[in-house]
């Protein structure tokens, strides 16, 4: 009986029909038109001169690349992007970790504070920018009031990047918190209990039991925050517009500025590809580290 059903299953799976291909047509078509084609077109256009609408007009080889990569302002932009990503990564991760450790044990009512810790993830960039612009005001701004400072947060080049970071961190903690919480709750209670019996204190338990077992989620969260920072556009556009004096101009903002405002489409393509290279490199590093250190149950 078992033998027969196995045989039947195999025969039904092995029969070659056009059905699976037909099922995949819409998916593959959409990916081809809106992911693969524009990606290769971006590469192609980065070696060309385009008109303002982004249409090809002349092949120029490496000239765009030499021009863009040779500019000092471009490397400042790359530097700002990395600084912004670093700031976001450290603080988002630390705070999300703290929240996740607080919520680790399911208790009666724990849903209430879990919802609160995760909530800003549902808030879009434009209302978030509106609220924070209000908090960031120089005159009678609430942040200055509570901190006892007098910064013009979004208009002072020395703190503008920190201001955009604060908003980004606030919006992104929720997602990281959820992933870490899922990871920590995967740890079986017996494991934690046996660690307690073996005399491991709370700090020791975090570092020797929880973190190693939740390492896939931890790696994912680290990576997620890096890529989220690289893609952060709306809050920068709405809070500072890349200013003051370019102190918050990141790569993605520069791509937008070149393509839409300056009409330099080919420059935007080169910069988008540099951004892609950085994100790609970050994923490779993540996979490499994950393979070497992650402990899968």
């Amino acid at each position: 009986m078992k033998e027969r059903s196995k045989k039947m299953k195999r025969s039904s799976l092995n029969r070659v029909t056009p059905t699976p291909y037909l099922l995949l047509v819409p998916t593959l078509l959409l990916f081809a038109i809106f992911t693969y084609y524009p990606f290769f077109k971006t590469i192609f256009l980065s070696f060309s001169v385009t008109d303002k609408t982004g249409a090809f007009s002349k092949w120029v080889g490496l000239r765009n690349w030499v021009r863009v990569l040779g500019k000092e302002s471009f490397w400042t932009t790359v530097g700002t992007t990395l600084k912004f990503a670093g700031l976001n990564l450290v603080f988002t991760f630390a705070i999300a970790m703290f929240f996740a450790l607080l919520c680790m044990n399911k208790k009666r009512g724990s849903k209430i504070y879990e919802v609160l810790y995760a909530m800003p993830l549902a808030i879009a960039s434009s209302p978030a920018a509106a609220i924070w612009l209000f908090l960031f005001r120089k005159e009678s701004g609430l942040l200055n009031y509570f901190l006892g400072t007098a910064f013009a947060w979004t208009e002072d080049a020395s703190v503008a990047l920190i201001a955009t970071s604060i908003v980004t961190i606030w919006m992104h903690i929720g997602a990281s918190f959820i992933f870490l919480l899922v990871g920590f709750r995967n740890v079986s209670e017996e494991l934690v209990e046996s660690a307690i019996i073996d005399g491991a204190g709370p700090i020791r338990r975090i570092f020797s039991v929880l973190i190693p077992i939740a390492s896939p989620q931890i790696f994912f969260v680290l990576f997620l925050n890096i890529t989220n920072s690289f893609k952060a556009f709306a809050q920068i556009k709405l809070l500072t517009g890349g200013g003051p004096s370019n102190s918050t101009k990141t790569l993605i903002f520069s791509v937008y500025e070149n393509a839409i405002i300056n009409g330099r489409f080919e420059t935007a393509c080169v910069q988008a590809l540099v951004l892609f290279a950085i994100i790609f490199l970050a994923t490779r590093v993540q996979f490499f580290l994950e393979k070497r250190t992650v402990f899968y149950q």
């Binding site: 982004g54 893609k231 489409f265 935007a268």
Partner: peptide
Amino acid sequence: SMMIPGDIVIITNYAQ
């Protein structure tokens, strides 16, 4: 395709 973030191709898609 998931390795290519939408924001990388957003400008080219917009032109299209």
